[in-house]
């Protein structure tokens, strides 16, 4: 499978007209095919807004986004995106397997994974995320971490070229989050999708991504783009490397400066 690159040029987003809030301002970011990019920043910096602009759910007020020669809206119509939300957003009336098969039912003939084996494909995805024994459970019968894994399997079920993830593991405990991070790296390694991953955890961003993009808040601007010096596949032990600590410290420092600026601005 081939990934698809994304070019974000001078994207700005303003809510509520002229006097409104500037959520994003002059965002430039080029993501190559198959790359894993993490967006980090304080809450309210417009990370989620940027994901929604890239996926064609929101129209930016300035600038443009190019998804391999298509506008985001065209790419969305071609079902190039998989989206994992902050909440699992499963349909409670469908069983776990039914939720993973939902995209197939909605897409019908447009599903590239369509074929006689599509239930098999869904079962394999559930096995990849460690849920093979829970196919027949309802979402209400499994834990929060499991639900988020079902959401991941659902997003991957139609081989989207680009995977967009909006703080998918933010509500989970540390152990579950570590395990899901490993599973995510494993799955992405297999599919080679382009990933844009929003998180507020610097450690999670460095562990997962090829590049980490720091955003400032109000207005959201790119303050730093850091290359992550570790090869893939990675194990959890990279987090104890001195370079990992150094990069974490550097990015955290940026966030703190940001906080001081914000504080000073409020005192004015």
């Amino acid at each position: 499978m081939t990934g698809t690159g994304i070019a974000i040029d001078g994207v700005g987003m303003q809510f509520g007209g002229g006097q409104g809030v500037t959520a994003l301002d002059g965002i430039d970011l080029h993501i190559s095919a198959g790359e894993f990019v993490a967006l980090v920043g304080p809450s309210g910096c417009g990370k989620s807004t940027l994901l929604r602009i890239v996926s064609g759910l929101l129209e930016p007020t300035s600038g443009r986004v190019d998804v391999s020669g298509k506008t985001p809206d065209e790419a969305r119509r071609d079902v190039d995106f998989g989206f994992v939300f902050q909440q699992p957003t499963l349909f409670p009336w469908l069983r776990v397997l039914g939720n993973v098969l939902l995209p197939d039912r909605v897409l019908g003939r447009r599903n590239p994974n369509r074929g006689p084996h599509r239930e098999q494909v869904a079962r394999e995805l559930l096995r990849d995320v460690g849920l093979e024994r829970f196919e027949d459970h309802y979402p209400g019968q499994v834990s929060g971490g499991m639900r988020q894994r079902v959401a991941l399997a659902r997003a991957l079920s139609y081989d989207p070229k680009i995977l967009l993830m909006d703080e998918p593991f933010g509500a989970l405990d540390e152990f579950t989050r570590d395990r899901l991070n490993l599973q995510l790296l494993d799955v992405c390694n297999k599919t080679g999708s382009t990933v844009l991953f929003v998180t507020h955890s610097i450690q999670e961003a460095i562990f997962l991504a090829d590049r980490v993009v720091m955003l400032s808040s109000r207005p959201g601007r790119v303050t730093r783009i850091a290359e992550v010096p570790f090869r893939k596949p990675r194990g959890l032990e990279v987090r104890y490397e001195p370079e990992f600590a150094a990069l974490t410290g550097e990015l955290r420092g940026l966030l703190e400066v940001e906080d001081e600026v914000e504080l000073a601005r409020r005192q004015l």
Binding site: L57, F83, F85, T89, F91, L102, R105, L107, R110
Partner: peptide, 22 residues
């Protein structure tokens, strides 16, 4: 939820599909 609607839009679902499936 607005996210469930966004999910259906990501799947480029028709109004008909959103109505019956969601």
């Amino acid at each position: 939820s607005s996210q469930a609607l966004e999910l259906m839009r990501i799947l480029s679902a028709t109004r008909w599909s959103i109505f019956w499936r969601l």
